[in-house]
Amino acid sequence: MSKVLIIGAGGVGGVCVHKCAQVPEVFSEIVLASRTIEKCDAIAASVKERTGRDIVTDTVDADNVPELVELINKHKPVLVINLALPYQDLTIMDACLETGVHYLDTANYEPLDEAKFEYKWQWEYQDRFKEKGLMALLGSGFDPGVTNVFCAHAMKHQFDEIHQLDIIDCNAGDHGHPFATNFNPEINIREVTANGRYWEHGEWIETDPLSFSMNYDFPEGIGPKKCFLMYHEELESLVKHLKGLKRARFWMTFSDQYLNHLKVLENVGMTRIDTVKYNGQDIVPLKFLKEVLPEPAGLGERTKGRTCIGCRIKGMKDGEPKDYYIYNICDHEEAFKEVASQAVSYTTGVPAMIGAMLMLTGKWTGEGVFNMEELDPDPFMEKLNIHGLPWTEVTFKN
């Protein structure tokens, strides 16, 4: 029986609270905090209606270490689940170190003034967490997160050597808006407009944003979709931990409508992350754009279709070449029925709960900072099938 503190009341936070509430034998007490108490209270009301459980709510400025320390000392959780913005990872990690509490997040740190996705800042916390006897689990979402565990599972059970990895993320859902993002617009647009990058023959190769694409035929009736090469943070840890890897890439699907809107917004300067003057005030165009776009947490009721996220892996097994695909399909409407959220938030919030569950039950333990693929994949893979994200494996004939 353990108390957790969840920071962040967006779409992913909402899913994670609902899923934690479904497992009272592990999550005996749940506290939800964010800058906006009304969002926390709305999630708590939804959880109460669905599960009958009471969620404690509170407020915090996650940029402020003393406030975070005060919050943690007030509620005394065993684990902090960080579902706030990636800019706030380090302040929350600092607060966990100061209060002696374990840490988990779903996305790596990036500086506020530069769209730069790197683990180096968080990896530098290794010695501090180890010295305190604490565990920090990084990237316990879907990608990163489940995709890392898929790779660890493949390495443990399917391959002797992994040579090529393609992580392929398809959202085949439709929310009916001309332009909206399925997770935080600010993070989404920073990610999509950044240069692409992939790993090949021991070095990183950089590409212009969305300049490389491929068509991929997705399973279970989703069919062929155009996918664009991007840089995604799990590549950085996977190329470090998967020995023998010769090439690793990440792909994501986007509709023509999304890309056309994004191009126009980019051309007129609305995706800029630097400060501009407006009526004597400093504003960041992308932050303003975020305020006028639909709130991702509110898209669930009108989103239909499915997501398909998986890993296409090639390598060697028993001296023979092997071509293998492992994936999950998640239905937007089914996710909304269960936890009042669309599938993009669901596929991140559920793995956050599972990672926390494995830490609290002692299935995943350690001192220091860990990426998902460094831990035993078997208990995580088992929980995916139980808690709403079942996976499928396919081996293609050579």
Score class of each variant (00 low, 15 high):
Y278H: 10
T275R: 15
L293D: 02
Q281F: 13
G298Y: 01
F288C: 13
T275G: 07
T303I: 01
Q281K: 15
G300K: 01
P285E: 10
I283K: 04
G298C: 00
R272P: 02
L299R: 02
D282F: 11
L265G: 04
E301V: 13
R302Q: 03
E291W: 04
V268A: 00
P296I: 02
Y278M: 14
Y278D: 11
T271P: 07
K287H: 10
L265P: 07
L289M: 11
P285I: 11
I283R: 02
D282R: 06
N267K: 15
I283N: 06
E291Y: 06
V276A: 06
K287F: 12
P285H: 09
R302Y: 00
R302G: 02
K290A: 06
V292M: 07
Q281W: 14
P296C: 00
I283W: 13
L286S: 09
V292P: 06
V292Q: 03
L293R: 01
V284T: 12
P296A: 00
F288Y: 14
G280L: 11
N279A: 13
V284A: 05
E301M: 07
G269M: 05
L293A: 01
V284F: 12
V284S: 05
L286D: 09
V284L: 07
V268L: 00
L286W: 07
Y278W: 14
P294E: 13
L265S: 06
R272V: 01
F288G: 10
A297C: 09
R272M: 08
E266Q: 15
K277R: 09
A297L: 10
V276T: 03
A297N: 05
A297T: 09
L289C: 08
R272H: 11
M270C: 09
E266G: 12
G300H: 00
T271V: 12
K277M: 15
L299P: 11
M270Q: 08
K287V: 14
G300F: 01
K290R: 15
T303N: 00
L299C: 06
R272I: 05
K277L: 11
V292G: 02
N279H: 11
F288P: 00
Y278E: 14
P294W: 08
E295N: 08
I283E: 10
L265T: 04
Y278V: 15
L299A: 04
R272A: 12
L293K: 00
P294V: 07
T303E: 02
L289F: 09
T275Q: 14
G298N: 04
G300W: 02
N279K: 13
M270V: 04
Q281D: 15
